[in-house]
Write a protein that binds this DNA or RNA. Structure first.
Lengths: 193, 193
DNA sequence: AAAATTTCAGAATACTCATTCCAATTCAGA
DNA sequence: TCTGAATTGGAATGAGTATTCTGAAATTTT
């Protein structure tokens, strides 16, 4: 009997997370999200409760999407080190392809909200752990394949890789050129071998 | 004949930059700044024009202060590599001493405003260049003192160091422990030798 | 002490924002 | 086709915002 939902919740989160990414939590108005999603005010509040809930769900959606993009690298026939290299090249390409629109919602959320909102903090921490876990696995693979030395413990090098990744996202907002980002990646990868 | 200013502009910028650091540009209201500085509304608008101008001046003030803190390292009787190490240890201490209040205005500004405001972008870029210049000098010193190999070009390693620095500031907002930050620093420094 | 000129307090203005609410619309199932 | 529950558009609400303005208070120099 009920009328069916006229919109797809994931699509809405997709659009919303992109606006939050560009404009931040405090810089985004509900009206902007309504316009971008085409949703009615009532539908939005009915489905997502309030702006803050929508933000947290957008964060989670973004995190899942980004991690999924990263994990796709696993399907490629590459050794662990090559996977790491592939991921970093992809990130650099993404960051430098659209210089005017290349922020990262996770980094922005860490900067803007992490200290003010426990739920944001939880997602941000969770994202860090997931990414580091991925790196840890790839580093271990690389060791098994003897492409990186056995004494370079995956557990200590994975935070280093994640740190570089976060750095790149800030650098790209600070006027760094693609060449510079690539050079940072090269030095980082050299540190592994 | 005129009444003298009842407040010190630098002190106001000090307080304002700290609030902007904690709450971001869009998250900060003029009223909060008035309360924290004790200034009257009229005095603030008389001295700083508007919120946006105050923000840019706060950014510049913060940048100068941070760079000054970094440059103090130059006074110590250390070789280039030791100076780099000292700076990173200081940053890690600062980041982990007040876990609940350890953001960096420059990183936050890069995330929140860099793409939306040319003046913010200019300060953020300028900060990057100043920091990298400092690192370049220290790396060159270290090469002269033969503590790092001659083939590690300061020009390519200084962006790497700045990248690590930015990463640390994001990591500390993402639940990284002091031990983890230190470990990132150790790997970074190992990459230099 | 008076004058000159700034500082200051706070009311007033003119938004913008998140959220609520209600009436009108829509549509799956009987 | 009719019905009932959900969806929807958009007006209404109420709080918060940056900024302006006016007149009173303050203070240094003459």
């Amino acid at each position: 009997m009920p009328k069916t939902k006229q919109f797809n919740k994931d699509k809405v989160l997709e659009v919303a997370s992109d606006i939050f990414r560009q404009r931040g939590y405090n810089g985004t108005s509900i009206d902007e999200i309504l316009k971008a999603t085409g949703l009615s005010r009532s539908s939005l509040y009915d489905s997502f409760n309030d702006k803050h809930t929508l933000y947290i769900q957008s964060l989670e959606h973004y995190k899942n999407l980004e991690m999924h993009r990263y994990e796709i690298t696993d399907d490629k026939k590459l050794n662990g080190l090559q996977k790491i290299e592939f991921l970093f090249k992809e990130v650099v390409n993404l960051l430098s392809t659209h210089p005017e629109d290349n922020g990262c919602l996770m980094v922005n959320a860490a900067a803007e909200m992490s200290k003010k909102c426990d739920k944001t903090y939880a997602v941000v921490c969770n994202n860090k752990e997931s990414a580091e876990e991925l790196f840890t696995n790839w580093l271990a693979d690389a060791q098994n394949d003897k492409v990186i030395p056995a004494d370079k413990s995956p557990k200590t090098y994975s935070p280093f890789l994640f740190n570089t990744l976060c750095g790149l996202k800030v650098m790209s907002q600070s006027g760094a050129s693609k060449a510079e980002l690539n050079s940072v990646v090269k030095v980082t990868l050299d540190a592994l071998v």
